[in-house]
Design a binder for these strands. Sequence first.
DNA 1: GTAGAATATTTAACACTGTAAAGTGTTCCA
DNA 2: TGGAACACTTTACAGTGTTAAATATTCTAC
Lengths: 198, 198
Amino acid sequence: MGIVERRERMKKQLRADILKTAKDIAREESWAAVSIRKIADVIEYSPPMLYEYFDNKDKILETIRNDGFAALHEELQKLKTLYRSPEKLLTEFAQIQWRFALEQTEVFQVMFNIDGANCLSKQVYQAEFAKLNTHPVWEALAQIRPRSADAVSKTFYEWWCLTYGFLLISIVTQPRPQLPNLEPIFMESVRRFVRGLS
Amino acid sequence: MGIVERRERMKKQLRADILKTAKDIAREESWAAVSIRKIADVIEYSPPMLYEYFDNKDKILETIRNDGFAALHEELQKLKTLYRSPEKLLTEFAQIQWRFALEQTEVFQVMFNIDGANCLSKQVYQAEFAKLNTHPVWEALAQIRPRSADAVSKTFYEWWCLTYGFLLISIVTQPRPQLPNLEPIFMESVRRFVRGLS
DNA sequence: GTAGAATATTTAACACTGTAAAGTGTTCCA
DNA sequence: TGGAACACTTTACAGTGTTAAATATTCTAC
């Protein structure tokens, strides 16, 4: 009775292929160039086949967006087990965010709707700001400077804007030969922010 | 001989109408919903007529983007005559940026390629980072903490990422009605940045 | 092993999109 | 008044997301 299992496995594989192909095209061309027909062409199926796996194009992007946030969350959980110092956790996570934006720019573009990536489903942001007090970054901030939950949440939002905002601007305004090495500037900003907390 | 002048005037008007209509549609629906045909419909001309005024759709967005940056530059020049204190200039400008992003969100979206606004022509960013030492914000930063030109330019980039990054994240992640609550957090971040300079 | 049901997949079509070429008016000057 | 210049529209093409219908394939039951 391994037949249904094999089918299930192939379905999962094809679904993953769709997502990968979308990202590949976006990386090599741009998100504006990503079309259902082009993806179908690469995975060697007819366009309507994609609708067996995703309700519509937007859901494809939504999946990539959610996966992106999930991947960062995973990294964050790893860091939590690695470092006891909340300051260290924050700067290390910022470093990971930088690498992620650099190495998987096309995913980052979807996560924040920039440069042609346009995904209507935005409920992932609400999720990011729900149950804040269990978020490792929130915990780290509270640990560094214990205050009311609301005050910590404010700082959390500042952190969010500082790190992701920096990356967004850096990606969108690229290429920018005048300021070649932005990573040190980014990390310096982050460290100053962390220092300024206590 | 007022005929050619009248024609010239009407051409200019129509050009402005195209830009305004694009922004109107973007504001009421989204940038994804802005199409040549829809604009043509509103200004009551056939679609190809638009190509007498703009080479293509991208040029329309590019114009809106450039106009947006130009508008902010103008405000900045005004501030320069109003305030002697560089700290005051910076915080006041941040306030203006906030209001601009709030009141002309659709222009802001084009300026930074977010939420469906997708404009390929990015040379305005290069222009923003060229001749930095004449930029009022650069001057203010240099005045507060005089250092090497490179060091000031670094700080300028941090300022840019802080303010615009904050606004980008706020626009992208928040459903509109919640945005006003964030202004104090934004301004607080800006003031802390300015304080940290000296 | 074959009929029929269930799945898997494709073909064809619709209503959109940006844009170019060709055609039609309309205005103006000699 | 004829013809050039200009203003503008019609038509068309290749592309988009998406749906319904048609077809091919696989599996199940006899």
